[in-house]
Design a binder for these strands. Structure first.
Lengths: 228, 228
DNA sequence: TCGCTTTGGTATATTTTTGGATCAATAACG
DNA sequence: CGTTATTGATCCAAAAATATACCAAAGCGA
């Protein structure tokens, strides 16, 4: 990255501050340190900092108010929406591939009967939807959410929730429905049942492995669809 | 770490309180401390606190009632900050446990030489920090970020980044440093080297397994610390 | 009900902080 | 060499923060 940092120019400082904002370290409405302080922390003269800030103001990142300070005027793109909506289908897939198998293990550890019953009823609903990709897709999202809910892990729930929200909208769905014929749905349903059973019988590794298999199936039909 | 802010202005105080509300520390219908108390706790004059509160009232966060007090009028939203900052250390740990082993596999697939060189230099930096938990912790966070960066998966990068940001602040760090003696750090460093080697030699499963082991070690010292 | 306390509301004079602007000296680069 | 960027210094005016005092509404207990 920056093994050697000698002199920071206006452009460098602008980049650093911009990054702080994007990262979320400086959030909306936050006031930046005074120019004189920034100058010292970055080891530059005040005039240089000033140029950097004026540039950021033109870019719409900050607002400079005389006598008051410099304020962040930019929804940090550290917001979930941004990171997730810009993700490609394959990136989403890889993320689910990372998360969901382990979520199955945690579901085995923390899940309760009520959770399993909810999954059960969702399985049934999905099995009634073999000819209705739209309804199936909805129930499918909810099934995966039910699994993560049973982990009682707020952070994981939130992440899966966000991913699910994206999955449910835009042209994504269009591509998805292309791959959802009756046969594929039946395959999914079998896998869902297997996952539920493995969780119910408290077999963490088996549940995780079937989930991997399930996601692998989904990934395959995804790549197959994108080749079309 | 971050730009130090000594003097708190009205905007700063507003931001702090706003964050307390978003985080859930101040819940709906809670009454804030009296202006005079807030003034003292934030080390500011009452007039300053007052401006901050009036601003928050305009933004719809609080309601000021003369003679009575200032009350929260705002449901904490489901933003990222919310989900992550409220996460317990163990929830964070489980999430990392889900993500990072698979991230190692992806790093094997997508990583390039430059990525590995960066990890290498971070390993060296960590090995120089065996007596400085603070510096080690920083480099450690950056090492894990370097791994996820090498996957080129924007979504995963974002998630790990967010988790890392939380890890780096508040009382979390305090607890963490309790467990970071020289011996623990040396153990981590060995594991880091092994992970890097496995990624370099393109052995996805080995990398993932060592990462699991690494996280298991971290989880153990975490639970050991929380029992104290 | 009465009266005291607590709480916010207002006003004002003063000091401090902050950005705005300018200029001569210096450094880096083609 | 000239161009450009950076520096460090100085002064200015707007904005904010402080300190103080007093007022009014709400709460609470006797």
């Amino acid at each position: 990255m920056e093994p050697i940092e000698q002199k920071l120019g206006a452009a460098d400082i602008a980049a650093l501050v911009r990054r702080e904002i994007s990262k979320g370290a400086l959030q909306l409405h936050d006031r930046l340190p005074p120019e004189r302080v920034l100058a010292e922390t970055y080891g530059a003269a005040r005039g240089t900092v000033r140029k950097a800030l004026m540039r950021l103001e033109q870019e719409g990142y900050v607002e400079i108010r005389a006598g008051s300070g410099t304020y962040v005027v930019h929804e940090s793109d550290g917001t979930a929406a941004d990171a997730i909506e810009n993700a490609t289908p394959l990136e989403l897939m890889d993320t689910r591939f990372a998360l969901e198998p382990h979520i199955c293990r945690l579901a085995v550890l923390h899940g309760r009967h009520a959770d399993f019953d909810r999954m059960e009823s969702l399985c049934s609903r999905m099995e009634e939807c073999e000819e209705d990709p739209m309804a199936f897709s909805e129930a499918d999202t909810e099934f995966h959410r039910a699994i993560v809910d049973s982990t009682r892990n707020g952070l994981l729930i939130w992440i899966i929730d966000q991913i699910g929200n994206v999955r449910s909208q835009d042209d994504w769905t269009r591509m998805r429905h292309l791959t959802l014929d009756g046969k594929t749905i039946r395959t999914y349903n079998v896998q869902h049942r297997q996952i539920l059973n493995a969780i119910r019988t408290r077999e963490p590794e088996r549940a995780a492995n079937i989930m991997k298999e399930h996601l692998e199936t989904a990934r395959l039909s995804l790549t197959r669809a994108s080749e079309t």
